[in-house]
Design a protein around this nucleic acid. Structure first.
Lengths: 214, 214
DNA sequence: ACCTTCTTGTGATTTTTTTCACAATAATTA
DNA sequence: TAATTATTGTGAAAAAAATCACAAGAAGGT
């Protein structure tokens, strides 16, 4: 785990590679890939170097091999099973999102506290929250997605961990506490948007200033 | 812009502060705040120092003042108007998400290419994609959210920029090209989940190894 | 077969970010 | 009011990440 960011980039590379492949490329150079994800080419080579991926001097990298290699590193050559907790806006959208399946991630079920939203016959079944622990244990689920309100999030996490979940993607806008043996990754939508607002304001001010000085 | 991460943390602080306030706190120390968002206390003080926020030695920080100050820095003392393009799973969920409004971000409209999904009378109106440029210009919209498929994303960005949008939050899983005067922030849900999978696998292997060695 | 050209792979360097450590100082207590 | 204690604010140090720069080695040309 030499660099936490490099692993995020590996996923990006894989994405870009898939696109480049459909565009007809069979091999690729570090600078093409760098362009595609917006970093510089040594970054690409260094990332590959860290994970022991090697190419061919002057010949670049074979795309198929590269994707295979990345999938191995990312644990994507086996289908990954996950559940979502919370069938609200975000939870429901994630359940319907096709992007996961395409990437070897299967959402096995959604869990929801509101009995009116429970629907075991849906394409992806929406089950009662009380059945979560049993489901996780029976199906050996390792990955959970939390899409419940802030106030319920910690409790959901605790139950997941208790049942054996090892990795959690959390959409509740709050920092959750998890034991060492469980990884938590947070996505905070408001925060991402605030970030855009801040930097675009900043940029606008900087450009105005430049214009005045010129 | 001394440190790109510090601005992200400012949003997190603000979030935590709101929570701490509802819990009855009136003032706060750097180590409480650090705990709340999971960093160490010098980080908090250094972040504040960078943005000229100061507290009271031994007295800590007044929460109300601090929130006010953060809102100023983040440009959140004025309501920020934004639009969403794409009324699919993600776009629709974002439109319904209450988190934005609470934070002074108003979604003024959603734009959608599919005429069947257009509904100008919805709570947040869903308008025809062709009307986007005019809407952005008339309403002086600066912030756009892209929630369309990968294949349409670049085109949407280009139109937004052309119309005057200065900051974009992109949910399409692709790197978009934007001119210097427009900030783009990417959220890639599959990638976030892959990250969880990678690190939880890694952790599990590491723990197994520890157990064997012990 | 040799020369030229292009691209990888990586140690060294630079830049960025985080953490340390402690002087300065406000609140609290005696 | 003086002594004590807790907490800030920040330069300096350490750690982490990105970039440079170039030797090594394939591919293609002559």
């Amino acid at each position: 785990m030499r660099n936490k960011n490099s692993i995020i980039r590996l996923s990006r590379y894989k994405n870009a590679l898939r696109r480049l492949k459909t565009m007809g490329f069979g091999r690729i150079f570090s600078d093409n890939l760098a362009d595609a994800i917006g970093v510089n080419s040594c970054q690409v080579r260094k990332d590959f170097s860290i994970f022991g991926i090697s190419g061919n001097k002057r010949g670049g990298y074979q795309i198929d091999e590269l994707i295979e290699h990345l999938n191995n590193i990312l644990g994507k050559n086996i289908i990954q099973h996950a559940i979502i907790v919370g069938a609200g806006n975000i939870g429901a959208a994630l359940a319907k999102y096709e992007g996961f399946e395409k990437d070897g991630i299967r959402i096995d079920a959604v869990f929801e506290a509101d009995p009116l939203k429970v629907n075991p016959r849906a394409d992806i079944p929406v089950l009662a929250a009380d059945d979560m622990i049993e489901f996780i244990q029976k199906n050996d689920i390792r990955i959970g997605i939390i899409a419940v309100p802030e106030s319920a999030a910690q409790q959901v996490l605790d139950l997941m961990v208790l049942s054996g979940v090892k990795g959690i993607l959390n959409f509740a806008p709050i920092r959750l506490r998890a034991p060492r043996e469980c990884v938590v990754n947070n996505v905070n939508l408001v925060l991402e948007l605030e970030n855009v607002i801040y930097f675009s304001n900043l940029l606008e001010k900087a450009l105005e200033k430049d214009a005045q000085e010129a």
